[in-house]
C-alpha cells in the first residue's frame, strides 16, 4: 500500500490543523460553557449590552473553525477537494474570530457610552487599543498565510489530479 503523494504544503497544513482544530474546538466549547455559566449569574440577562454577546460569538467561531479545520485536514490528507475547501473556510473563520474579538476589545477600552447613549472615543484607552490591534494582526497572519497557501496552484492541481485518478480508477473498475 503506497500513501498518496501530497505536496508538502498540503501535508504541513493538514497536520497543523489536526493539532490546532481539536484544541480550538475544545477551548471554544469550554468558553461557551463558561459564558453560559456567567450569563446565568446576571440578575437580568435580557438587559445585557449587545457587545457582551460578541464574546460567546468568538468562542462559537473558535469551535466552528476547530471542527471544520479538523474535518478539512483529515480530508485534505486524502487529497480531496472538499478537504481543501473546508480547511480554507476554517482559516477564514479563524481570521474573522480574531477580528471580532479585537473589535470587541477595542470598543471596550477605546470608547465609552455617554449618559445620552452615544458612544464616544476615549483617547486614554487608545494606546491599549492600538497594541491589541497589533497583537491581533500578528495572530491573524498565520491563518491568512495558510488560507493563501491552500489556494496555491501546487495544492489545487495536486487535489485535482488525485480526484481525476480516483475517478479513473473507479471507471476502470466498473
Amino acid at each position: 500500500m503506497i500513501a498518496p503523494i501530497r505536496p508538502r504544503a498540503a501535508t504541513v497544513l493538514s497536520v497543523i490543523w489536526l493539532y490546532l482544530g481539536p484544541s480550538s474546538a475544545l477551548g471554544g466549547i469550554a468558553g461557551l460553557a463558561g459564558g453560559a455559566a456567567v450569563l446565568s449569574l446576571l440578575p437580568d440577562p435580557g438587559n445585557v449590552e449587545a457587545p457582551f454577546f460578541g464574546l460567546p460569538a468568538c468562542f462559537l467561531g473558535a469551535t466552528v473553525s476547530g471542527v471544520l479545520g479538523t474535518a478539512g485536514a483529515w480530508k485534505l490528507l486524502a487529497l480531496t477537494h472538499r478537504g481543501r475547501a473546508l480547511l480554507e473556510l476554517a482559516n477564514w473563520i479563524a481570521v474573522g474570530t480574531i477580528a471580532l474579538f479585537t473589535l470587541i476589545f477595542v470598543l471596550g477600552v477605546a470608547t465609552t457610552i455617554e449618559p445620552f447613549g452615544h458612544r464616544v472615543v476615549r483617547w486614554e484607552g487608545m494606546d491599549l487599543a492600538l497594541r491589541a490591534i497589533a497583537i491581533a494582526a500578528v495572530h491573524a497572519v498565520p491563518f491568512l498565510v495558510m488560507a493563501r497557501k491552500l489556494r496555491a496552484p501546487v495544492v489545487r492541481f495536486a487535489v485535482r489530479d488525485a480526484e481525476a485518478r480516483r475517478e479513473r480508477a473507479l471507471t476502470s473498475e466498473s
Binding site: 503506497i2 500513501a3 498518496p4 503523494i5 501530497r6 508538502r8 501535508t11 504541513v12 493538514s14 497536520v15 497543523i16 490528507l77
Partner: peptide, 11 residues
Amino acid sequence: ALHTRADAWRT
C-alpha cells in the same frame, strides 16, 4: 511517499 510521511511526522 516516504518523504511525504516524513514531512507529516516532522510537522
